[in-house]
Amino acid sequence: MNQEVFAKKRDYLLLLPSLIPLLLLFVYPLLKGFVMTFQQPETAGLTLANYVEFFTNSNYYDTIWRTLYLVVPASIIELFIAFGITYFIREKMRGGGIIAGLTIFPLTLGSIIVDMAVIAFFKPTGWFNTTLINMGLIDEPFTLVYNYAGAFIALVILGTAFIASNLVGMMGTIDPNLERAARTLGASRWVTFKRVFWPLIRSNVLTVFALNLIMQIGVYSTAVIVGNPASETRTFVVVAFEEAMRNFNYNMANTVAIVMGITQLLVLSIVFAIRKRGYIGSASTFK
């Protein structure tokens, strides 16, 4: 009757074909990388020197602040834009599909093409500044590329696309009858949103927000191409890449990566702590 009774130990051997690549390609490098952070190049002894260096040299520890300063505000703006768009097209609306499509479209292009597009559009001689100057609104072009602003714009475009692609489906999981019920009971649109719609979608929205946030903490190409990787947008990965590829210091590169990983975990736990304070559960109760 009970299938589990017949599961023998040797049955787990069937897992090996999928487990071996995972162990070799992911787990081993991860552990190896972790151990390397406690070593110096070309010496064997274990030491905390890499971490000491990271947290005493501003060239390294500034990356924590710089990355978060770029990514956290961008993520919050992305969330607002993506939520706003998907909320208003969630009911059958003419052109809603096109709006959703255009919002999500940058995902198909990938980071580098979006970065190049931002440069083309926002550079001093690009369409954006040219239009504003021609309209007589400004005399000097805004400097919107190769700095914080450029990286910020590119991040917002990609992050909005990512969050929106997740929210489009989630909006549909809230039964419109719940909102109708609230409205017939006397709630205004705003109160209906505040007391019914938002509490039900909140936990899913925060999950997507957290996912997007930790993805963007690993930003590299945007920071390099349209940002200023020497100072303002000197993020974790920029520094790690520099250590590995220019200085050939894999130990330091790994140290940066580990600090980044810990930062991501911290950010994740903050968002999830906030998430846990509200309703977490299914938005449907119907039996």
Binding site: D175, A181, T184, T285
Partner: peptide
């Protein structure tokens, strides 16, 4: 929201994040 209609939906449309009493009190809160 101003018609003062009591509606029972086919799928009940009860608020999953509220208790029975909170569900019933919703219209009174409004």
């Amino acid at each position: 929201s101003r018609r003062d209609i009591g509606m029972v939906f086919q799928n009940y449309a009860l608020f999953p994040h509220m208790t029975v009493a909170q569900n019933i009190a919703f219209g009174l809160d409004m």
